[in-house]
């Protein structure tokens, strides 16, 4: 038995760097993104082999699913921009800039290239050797976590670490997600998609079937998080997958969501997490010290709130900009000459 799974690991461990190399060496960007998604899914298999189900779920849902979808939509936007760019140049509007084509530039600095490659190889070999030297991990904080599992209020060790022992990390983690949504909203506004884009019959039925199932699976993952692999991040990611599917199929209900409600949904998770953290201090405890034996209940409450917020935030990140203004798109010249994405879209 061991040799077969051992061989399975060897194939997997060799496939990852090979795929990574092909990914960066591939000439066509679309193929690079596809390889990146395949790498994410293979990585998820690796996490399964390394006994990390939570990470496998998160990698599959966030790493391969959402990041892949983000890259695809960015790639499409880049192509549409360069397409409209070519049309403008064709029409002679943009002055021809004398940029040195990138290929030639790379040869311009061979010394730096060789030096950086050499440094990298030396560093990797040194690190590889030193990693080989050190004995296997002595269990780090594992025994300490196992010892305190009694008071943690949940069965799954990873959820206990994430939301109880190191809950402060997860709180800041939610702030990072919120900040990303803020950043994307502050940079651009979502293009006014043409109304005419009614999804085809097949896609409509697919969406009608998959989205409810995804929402149920998300709820299931959040619920199962306390005892097995799952939790707020994984549940939120699957919820976001449902949101992305709705955005993809250009379902009209998505555009009717009032901006105020959307902002509250984004803020809900971090705000409730912060308030519960402070509420724990009311009863004389420290920040995030769940009172008495009710840690399990508090954790479930926080997880469900954050899962909703993560889902909405990741879907908003996929949308890639502030929701279009409900009123007639007022003259929003928020950028300089090459103005906002909406200009590009109208070309």
């Amino acid at each position: 038995m061991m040799d077969v799974m051992g061989f399975f690991d060897i194939v997997l461990a060799l496939a990852l760097p090979w795929l990574g190399w092909r990914l960066l060496a591939s000439s066509d960007l679309f193929r690079a993104v596809v390889l990146f998604i395949s790498l994410g899914l293979l990585m998820s298999l690796t996490w399964v082999r390394l006994q990390a189900p939570d990470v496998a779920l998160a990698e599959a849902a966030i790493g391969a699913g959402l990041t892949g979808a983000l890259f695809l939509s960015a790639l499409r936007r880049l192509e549409r921009l360069s397409e409209s760019e070519r049309r403008l140049e064709h029409a002679g509007k943009r002055e021809e800039d004398e940029t040195i084509p990138p290929e030639k530039r790379r040869r311009a600095k061979p010394v730096a290239y060789v030096l950086s490659l050499f440094l990298l190889v030396v560093f990797v070999l040194l690190l590889g050797w030193s990693l080989g030297q050190t004995p296997g991990a002595k269990g780090g904080l594992g025994p300490a976590v196992a010892g305190q599992m009694g008071q943690s209020g949940v069965q799954s060790q990873v959820t206990a670490v994430l939301l109880n022992f190191r809950g402060y990390d997860t709180l800041l983690e939610m702030m990072v997600l919120f900040l990303a949504a803020l950043g994307v909203w502050s940079l651009t506004r979502v293009r006014q998609t043409q109304q005419g884009e009614v999804p085809g019959p097949v896609l409509a039925t697919l969406v009608r079937l998959l989205v409810p199932l995804m929402i149920i699976v998300a709820g299931y993952l959040v619920w199962i998080g306390s005892s097995r692999a799952g939790g707020a991040f994984q549940g939120g990611a699957v919820l976001a997958a449902a949101g992305v599917l709705l955005l993809l199929a250009n379902v009209t209900v998505v555009r009717q969501v009032p901006a105020g409600l959307l902002r509250w949904a984004l803020v809900l998770g971090p705000l409730l997490f912060l308030l519960t953290a402070v509420a724990c201090m009311g009863g004389g405890g420290n920040l995030l010290e769940y009172p008495g034996q009710s840690a399990g209940v508090w954790i479930l409450f926080i997880e469900s709130a954050t899962a909703v917020s993560i889902g909405v935030t990741l879907a908003a990140l996929y949308a890639g900009g502030r929701p279009p203004a409900p009123s007639a798109p007022e003259k929003d010249n928020e950028e300089g000459p090459g103005s906002g994405v909406d200009k590009g879209g109208k070309a």
Partner: peptide, 28 residues
């Protein structure tokens, strides 16, 4: 040892957030 798992989960979510902002910036 579950602590690295928690760290990697946090790391994955951080990297998806940074990637999202980076992609929007690239488009701009």
């Amino acid at each position: 040892d579950p602590v690295p798992h928690a760290m990697v989960l946090t790391g994955i979510v951080v990297s998806v957030s940074t990637t999202a902002v980076a992609l929007v910036l690239v488009c701009l």
